[in-house]
Simulated assay, not measured.
Amino acid sequence: MAYVPQGPRELGRSGVCVPALGLGCAPLGNLYTAMPEERAQAVVSTALDGGSGYLDTAPHYGLGLSEERLGRALAGRAPGSYTLSTKVGRRLRPLAPGEQPDGQGFVDVPARAREWDLSRDGIRAGLESSLERLGVDAVDVVYLHDVENHLREVYETGFPALAELREQKTVRAIGFGMNHSDVLARLVADLDVDVVLCAGRWTLLERTAYDDLLPVCERRGTSVVVGGVYNSGLLADPRPGARYDYATAPDELLRRARELAAVCGEFGVPLRAAALRFPFGHPSVAAAVVGAAGPEEVRDNAELFGHDIPDALWHALVDRGLLDGDLPLPTSDPRRPV
């Protein structure tokens, strides 16, 4: 029997539980390309109706557009029927006269600008604004977002403000979300963190988080939500010009991704299915959040997530040098390498 992650799983000791497969809502903010409103609503509805009831968003995504669209999709749904996370650290403001929006990868965005604010009042005001855009009274999880260059403010005011909100039961679980696993490892070691969202550093193509973040999380009892399982697209479709880490993939990584796909094909397993499953070899991983450009991709991700992957595939990837031999594998035998 092949290993299939089962949910829901608790985030740290917070009492917040999430299904193993969640929906990343950056595409709702028009990431790289505009998404029609009707399609955005269908994405969320399909995820919720299909069991992917963990929804992750942020003010950064489309300058609030993702949160607004998600809020419209959640209207009328019982709060307890889904788990919702958003992020703080950047506040949004209206554009000044003559100022142009900086989409930072998002297109057709509202006339707003981002401003860093990790003060206590800024954290509280940022969360309140998110709740208004989402049309909800509370969210389950709040992450400090992309704060790797603001660590002094994180330690002095940002994280204490989040911890205060948790203590007051305004939010149930708190943590950090970013691409830098080494910074996440430091923060988990130093602070009382329930969960981290680590994007792109624990995938079929990259083991960085296994070497720095995951050991600390396992020791501290901190859960990991994995984002970027496809490394910006390379592991979804390894073709020339594919993105890796938000830029065009280097030739060496493209070659390796194509080799991974070839071996997966020998076992009748789509590369995307293997990419979705791989992170769950580590016991600290609670969930993966995956974006979708339409409802058909939501259904496809769910189908791929449940794909039967034989243990022999993982061992073949190790034997052919495409995965390091010390990595934990998502096999039916839970024993980890020593």
Rank of each mutant, 00 (worst) to 15 (best):
E303I: 11
D333C: 03
R9S: 01
A274M: 10
T331W: 08
P295R: 03
A257E: 01
R133I: 02
G291F: 04
A161E: 12
A138P: 11
E10H: 10
D300I: 00
V224K: 09
R220M: 00
L234E: 04
K169I: 03
R207L: 08
T83K: 13
E115L: 14
G294A: 03
A2L: 07
A312N: 03
V139N: 13
V154H: 11
L11N: 11
E67I: 02
A78D: 15
L213D: 07
A161H: 12
A2I: 07
E156G: 02
R69Q: 04
D300C: 09
E297I: 04
R13M: 05
L253Q: 15
L271Q: 03
R166I: 10
D102P: 06
G227V: 05
L204N: 04
V154S: 05
V139W: 05
L197Y: 06
G325L: 10
Y82M: 00
L204H: 03
V225Q: 11
E252K: 14
P36S: 08
A125K: 13
R258N: 00
A125D: 14
R91Y: 07
G24N: 06
R172M: 06
D49L: 12
A287K: 09
Y82W: 12
E99I: 04
V188S: 00
E252G: 10
D137L: 09
S45E: 15
V318R: 01
P215H: 05
L184F: 04
G200W: 01
A58H: 02
D102K: 15
R166L: 05
A209P: 06
D311W: 06
V285N: 09
A26F: 02
T86A: 09
G126Q: 05
G29E: 06
A2V: 13
R112W: 14
S284R: 10
G29A: 07
V88P: 12
L65D: 03
H60Q: 11
V136A: 08
R13N: 14
V188W: 00
A75M: 09
A274H: 07
G7P: 06
R256S: 03
R133F: 00
L165K: 05
A292K: 12
V4H: 09
R336I: 08
E37R: 11
D245A: 14
A113P: 04
D212S: 15
R39C: 14
L28K: 07
E167H: 13
D326L: 10
G53N: 14
Y230K: 03
G105Y: 00
Q104S: 15
R220I: 00
P295I: 01
L322V: 02
G71K: 06
E167M: 08
P79A: 04
G64P: 07
P328Q: 09
V4Q: 07
E266R: 15
N301W: 07
R219H: 13
L55P: 05
A2S: 15
R124P: 07
F159Y: 15
A247H: 13
V263Q: 02
S119W: 11
V216A: 00
D137S: 15
R207G: 12
W314D: 01
A125M: 11
L187W: 13
E252M: 10
H60K: 12
R258L: 04
M35I: 14
L184E: 11
Y61S: 13
A273C: 05
V109E: 09
N231F: 02
P283D: 00
G50K: 02
N30A: 03
G7R: 02
P279I: 00
C198H: 08
T248R: 15
Y230A: 10
D146F: 04
G233F: 01
G221E: 00
P279G: 02
